[in-house]
Structures are given as structure tokens and as C-alpha cells.
Design a protein around this nucleic acid. Structure first.
Lengths: 350, 350
DNA sequence: TTGAAAGCGCTAACAT
DNA sequence: ATGTTAGCGCTTTCAA
């Protein structure tokens, strides 16, 4: 066994393989890149030579001539101003949201032997870094997950002519591909469920209202409640954080102590809100029914477990990746958006 | 302004810059790489030429000759067998633990203009992919965060002669650098605090006992409790998950309903345990004091907020990165381990 | 201090 | 169907 192992790993080149197989470099290259028109016998000889030499293609050399890196960036971005440059931007990854997106991206890329480069772009300097990183050919394109509405990065990417796909619809239309979920339909799902449960005094805690997703979830919810005969419902705005869920629910309890159903625009806020409801002696779902949004890991960490509107984030992330690769492949391809349907996951909270 | 912008981005080469500056490629290269022995006037001329041409060095070309990629892999690894290859390994990132590590790595790398490639290695196939990815020169080395004790990847990396650094001490000694926290000292911190609070019937929920970290936290805790006159304390083993925290605490309540203090080996389990204590009508910290471990985001999501043993994970991750880069720089450098001291963060739960 | 020239390992015309 | 050849853009001796 051990005599096949080259003592210096990763040293052999196409040239070596060609010599061992008794063919030219071009032929070896053809075999490796799966180009037809190669005699099966020779193919076999080449394969053997490859395994004998322990050959592994050199990425830099290939990349230099193909002008492709075969890798993409996964950029987690915000709108942070010049201000304080937190060297440890903990929250981004702390958010259970990110986990499912990353999983979807990795799941799609893995069979292709690709892996994303992880970048953060919370400051203007970091955004510049992303652009120049791509321009230097470190990656062929970018997947962008923005946490804030006013993120300037999408436009920067478009202006630089770099392939990119967003995880959510940008607040103002720009010519860039994206995937998203039908937020409005999600709001409808929540409203229908609360009404069907018999809730009569329903309220909602929204996400930051400058984010399209928040607006749409709210619009779908309001619209549907109105259709069910509840044109006016209490609204408290949150910011998608656990804490803001607590604060918002606190306010709701103070102003509308008689609510019997709440739609909360994401699971993390719902988790916080649940704690407050419990402190106020409300039984869930009997006194107050709660519906969240996302179906992130937070939904399972809630007690009782959260009934929630599920975004198929892994599928969305996979599709986002597929879109990006097709843009890389075919730069003239026109901008596309793909919208996924949410579903209601019923657990104990409503 | 706009006339400086080249219409085709990323197109200019060293050659172009040299022509514009009226010098040779070699000189431009020297300026870019900060090599001295270049006439200041020429340096200035070159710099101007660079900005005029909008030049950005081509990574593949540089990498081909330097035999360095200037990037590293961040590998999240487990011990998963061939079995079910979960295409969406949600949990890994869901764990608030990962967030702080990633932040530390990114924080260290960013000033260097580097960004990690994110890889998952839960299956044998995926581990092979990691090895060949590195061997192909896609990255110069690997940072390894293992979730399971029996992870075979560290040894694979060592055997392949690839630079790597682990986030935690491997269960069996292998010649590889790592960073870790003094788990034992952490257990001591927790014990001292519970005793100082006046707890007299103390128990602990441990992590999986095949993991060195779990063993050490327990050992430090037991040892210190013994020193305080409590040689025997109830022990329940968990697996670091939220759910297992609930289950373990449920069992503790059944078998030792009179406990007044619990040390729980990570925050996620503590979060679950807190819910159970609440269900059993225990007031925290008056009836039962709870100390967690990690100081992850879960500690802040607890109600009451968790008193916990803090690992300086960002610092550890930064150091891990620094170690890896020094191994890449100097392959003969000898294996090193760096151990960090934990601290007690006192909040409301104890 | 600067320039000329030789590759790094690979792919892709082009020729055979 | 296979081989020959010309670079891709950069760094790095070696000369001058």
C-alpha cells in the first residue's frame, strides 16, 4: 500500500501524467475535463497514470487560462455606516436565519466540488473589499444576504458588472436576480389560521417597516384579516431581534391586554414575545395563539413550540446558487427572480 | 469623474501598468509587493499608473508562481458515518457557538484582505473533498471546528501534510496545533460561584462524556465541589443540544427535586433546562441557581439571563487563524497549542 | 536600482 | 483522435 504514496504531496503535474501514460498533455487534459473524442483505451491508460502519480490539477494554472475561479462568494451584508467597525460581528451568524441559508448553499455546491468564500460586508470599507476581491478573480460571483434594507452593495455589484444574486427582493428595483418567498401569501396563511382557530382580537408584531419583506407580511396579514371582518388590528413594529419581540409584546400587553391571537413577523421575535406572554400569565395557545414566521431553529426552541409560516430557505438558497452559476456561465443571461411559496407549519402555539 | 472608469473592469494587467508608467513589469511587481530598492519617483509614477489603469492583480497568475493561494478553509466537521448524508446540515450553523468562532476568524482575516472558504465535512466523502480541495491548492490550510469527538479529519490532514489548526484539543494526541480554553478552570469557576451563593444541593448536567471538553468541565467542577465538602454530586449526561438540556433537567427534577444549584456544561442546554425549571415552578435563581458555559448568544436569550462561564471564542478563533497562517508561512514550524482562560460572567440566573 | 527572460501548470486553437 | 504550440499574468533569478 504505502509505496504508492508520493512522499511530497500534490507535486505531480499534467506533464508527469502525460509522460507516464505515454501521451501528450492535451490528451490528459481532455480526459480530465471529460471531453469526448478520446479513445477509451487511452482514457483508461490516462486514468491509471493519474492514480499512479497521485495527480491533482492545479487550480491556479487552470484558472489563469479559463478565466474562471470555480468559486463564489457568500456575502453577508448590512448597511452599516462608516461608524464603529465591530471587529466581531457576532449577530449575523447568531441569527438562526443564516444557518438555513448557508446549508442550502453548501448543499447545492458540494456535489459540484465547490465551496463558498465567506465574506462580511457591514462597512463601506468591507464593501469595497468585496468588490475588489471579485475583480481580482478570487471568485466568479456573489451570493448576497442582506440584513438591512438600505444595503448599497447590490448596486455596487451591478455597477461593477459582477455576477450576483440576492436572497431577497431589493427595496428599490435594480437589475439584479433574486430569490424570495411570497411574503404576502405568508401573511395570509397566518391570518387564516388565527381566524380559523377562533381568535377574535388579533394583533401583529411586524419587522422593520423599511424592509419589503416586513411590509408584505403585514400587508398580506392585514388584507386577509380585513376580508375576515377585522379591518383594524393593533400593530407594533419590531426589528426582528429577540429583544424587540419582548419589547413589542410588552407594549401590546399594556395597550391591548385582551388580545387572543398574535402574528409575529419572525420566529426570533416570537420567541421573545412568548416569554412576555408567559410572564403575564397567558396560556399559549388557549389564552393567546401565536404564529411566527420563518420556521427557523428558534421555532423549535420555543415552549410551546411555535406554529409558524415556513420559508423553504434551503431550497431558496439552492436556487439562488443555481441562478448565480448560470449567470457566471452565461454573462448575458437576463435577470431573473424566483419566488417560493410559504407553508404553514402547525405546532403547539396556535 | 466618470472618464477614469474603464468600461471593461478588471481587464488591465501588469503589462499595461508598466507601459503607462514607462517601466518594466518587474518594477511594477516590486512596487506592488512592497519590495524596497525602488526609486521613490518611480514608485510614485507606478502608483499613478496603477490608479489610472484601475489595475487589480490577478490572483491565479500570482498564485501559480508563488504556490500560495492566500486563502484558507474554515471546516466545520463531524464524525458522521457513511450513513445518511443530510444535504442540509442545519444544526451546525444553528449552534450559536459557530457564530462567535466565525466572527473571530473573519475579524482576524479581514485586515489581511483574506476570507475563509466555508466547508462542511460530515461524511467520509466530504472529508475526502476537503483533502483534495486543499491538495489542489484551493486553500493553503484549514481551520477545523469539530462537533464530534471521533472526527477523523484531523488525522487525515496531518497525514496529508496539510497545514491545519483545531479549535479544540483532539481526544487522542496527534501532532497538530490547536487552541482551547481551560475547561477545568471553567468548572472550578462555576463550582466556586454556586458555593459562594450558598447552594448546598448542587448537581450538574454534562456534555457528551467522550468529548475532552465535557470531561474537563466536569472534572474541574467535581474536584472543586469536593474541596468545598461535597464529594458526591448528581450527574446527568447531555449532548450539548437544547433538547437534551430539557431532558436532563427533567430527570434531575425527578430524581433530586431538592437541588438548589446546577452547573450546565453549555448555554444551549441551560436554556432548555431553564424552561423545565420554570415548568416545575422553581424561581431562578432563588430556588435554583443555574450556571452555564460558553457565553453564547443563547445565554442572553434566556430568561432570566444566564450566568455563565465565558470562553473568549473570538480571541481563540483569531489565535487559531494566526497559528494557521504561521504554519503556512513556515511549514517546518513546530506544533503549538494555546490555552485561554475562561471567566465568569454574572447575570441573573446565579 | 532596473530590465530581460524564463517559467509556474494548464487549456485551447490549430495542425496533423 | 491526438499532438504541437502559444500563451494566461505574474514573480524571480540573473545581468547590466
Amino acid at each position: 500500500m504505502s509505496e504508492d504514496l508520493p512522499s511530497i504531496p500534490s507535486s505531480s503535474t499534467l506533464e508527469d501524467v502525460a509522460r507516464v501514460a505515454g501521451v501528450s498533455r492535451a490528451t490528459v487534459s481532455r480526459v480530465i475535463n471529460g471531453i469526448r473524442n478520446v479513445d477509451p483505451d487511452i482514457q483508461e491508460k490516462v486514468r491509471q497514470a493519474i492514480s499512479v502519480t497521485g495527480y491533482a490539477p492545479n487550480r491556479a494554472a487552470r484558472s489563469l487560462v479559463t478565466r474562471r475561479t470555480g468559486s463564489i462568494a457568500l456575502v453577508v451584508s448590512g448597511a452599516g455606516d462608516e461608524g464603529e467597525e465591530d471587529p466581531f460581528p457576532n449577530r449575523v451568524f447568531g441569527d438562526p436565519f443564516f444557518g438555513r441559508v448557508a446549508s442550502g448553499v453548501l448543499g447545492f455546491l458540494r456535489p459540484l466540488g465547490m465551496h463558498p468564500v465567506l465574506m462580511l460586508a457591514e462597512t463601506a470599507a468591507a464593501r469595497e473589499q468585496v468588490i475588489s476581491y471579485l475583480r481580482q478573480g478570487n471568485a466568479d460571483g456573489a451570493l448576497l444576504v442582506s440584513s438591512h434594507a438600505a444595503d448599497p452593495l447590490p448596486k455596487l455589484l451591478v455597477d461593477a458588472g459582477l455576477p450576483a444574486v440576492l436572497f431577497a427582493r431589493p427595496p428599490r428595483p435594480i437589475p439584479i436576480s433574486y430569490v424570495d418567498v411570497a411574503h404576502r401569501a405568508g401573511g395570509t396563511l397566518a391570518a387564516d389560521h388565527l381566524v380559523a382557530r377562533g381568535c377574535r382580537r388579533v394583533a401583529t408584531i411586524t419587522g422593520p417597516l423599511d424592509v419589503p419583506a416586513s411590509q408584505d407580511r403585514l400587508a398580506g396579514f392585514q388584507e386577509t384579516m380585513a376580508r375576515h371582518g377585522h379591518p383594524y388590528i393593533p400593530i407594533v413594529e419590531g426589528d426582528f431581534s429577540h429583544d424587540s419581540g419582548e419589547t413589542a409584546m410588552q407594549r401590546l400587553m399594556a395597550e391591548h391586554p385582551d388580545v387572543d391571537g398574535v402574528f409575529i413577523a419572525n420566529d426570533l421575535m416570537a420567541q421573545g414575545a412568548l416569554l412576555v406572554l408567559r410572564d403575564h400569565g397567558r396560556r399559549i395557545p388557549d389564552d393567546v395563539a401565536v404564529v411566527g414566521f420563518d420556521d427557523s431553529s428558534a421555532a423549535l426552541a420555543c415552549r410551546p413550540q411555535l406554529t409558524t409560516v415556513r420559508q423553504p430557505m434551503e431550497d431558496m438558497a439552492a436556487e439562488m446558487t443555481r441562478l448565480l452559476l448560470s449567470h457566471v456561465e452565461e454573462p448575458e443571461r437576463r435577470v431573473t427572480s424566483v419566488i417560493f411559496e410559504p407553508t404553514l407549519v402547525i405546532r403547539q402555539s396556535a
